[in-house]
Design a protein around this nucleic acid. Structure first.
Lengths: 148, 148
DNA sequence: ATCTTGCTATTAACATGTTAAGTAAACTAT
DNA sequence: ATAGTTTACTTAACATGTTAATAGCAAGAT
């Protein structure tokens, strides 16, 4: 079906959408078995890798907007995967920490996650994957919005 | 901030997310002024380019899932930008057509849309843009899910 | 003719995306 | 000190993403 619509293949927004779906599909399937979403998984991994963080930094590192993150942190707290405490000196801020259960959830799925990454590298080609990542990062680094 | 987190730059899902945000930001801003979302714009453009279609084909061409499309078609009908009629021979299906108002909305924004595309080509580089699109399409064409 | 199977579109339920507004706390400059 | 500003997080409102279930219809097989 899709090959009869050549235009959309040259549309960058749609190409990015399709590529993302291709990569995320298997990951989502894996996470669905454990009962966490792709976004919740990102938050947990950031916390596991970098330790206690405040919500603003979590949002930046996991590429989530603050309103989304607010809801996700509530969900993760309910699930017992994170804890939140007040910041010692700045009462506007919080400190979020992953719990042992959260770390366990990551440990239970990290191997499969790495297997999916390896499959991608092998199937798509390590050279092409690196080239793609380079281009995407360059694109993201483009200076400013085209408001001229 | 972001440059202190080298890992996420090499994560394909997140790199795709950031790149998409970079490209879509200006487009969303343009469309917000007219009162349509990015997804509604995609549907209208598909209908304008290819004429009357049934919802299943619209979903395929605009990269939307059917439940999302159902709601979007309701919204677009309310806004008077599309019309829906029953399929003459298959009563399960519908035929969706863009209205004159819908075509006018596209005409009003097409030039700006093309200007944004041109800005991207020039700013990012035509060669790199083509290379990126090629890689994304190749990725999307990868055979099957890694269920081994 | 009925029965099964598959297709089309919708609905439901929950999670996130997105923009705008709101609240509370910290900062800045007088 | 205090008015004005900025920062951190939350809430609200609406749109979409995602999976599962549902209803109506079509087509093929028995």
């Amino acid at each position: 079906m899709r090959d009869t619509a050549p235009e959309t293949n040259r549309s960058l927004p749609i190409a990015l959408l399709r590529a993302r779906e291709k990569v995320m599909g298997p990951i989502r399937a894996m996470l669905a078995d454990v009962g966490v979403t792709e976004q919740q998984w990102r938050v947990l991994r950031v916390l596991a890798e970098r330790g206690t963080l405040d919500p603003t930094e979590i949002a930046d590192r996991s590429c989530l907007l603050m309103p989304s993150l607010t809801r996700i942190l509530q969900t993760l707290t309910t699930k017992g995967l994170i804890t939140r405490e007040a910041h010692p000196t700045d009462r506007r801020r919080q400190l979020v920490t992953i719990t042992a259960a959260g770390r366990q959830l990551i440990a239970d799925n990290l191997k499969e996650s790495q297997r999916l990454n390896a499959w991608l590298r092998e199937s798509f080609g390590a050279d092409k994957l690196d080239a793609l990542l380079d281009l995407l990062n360059e694109l993201d680094a483009l200076d400013r919005d085209p408001r001229g």
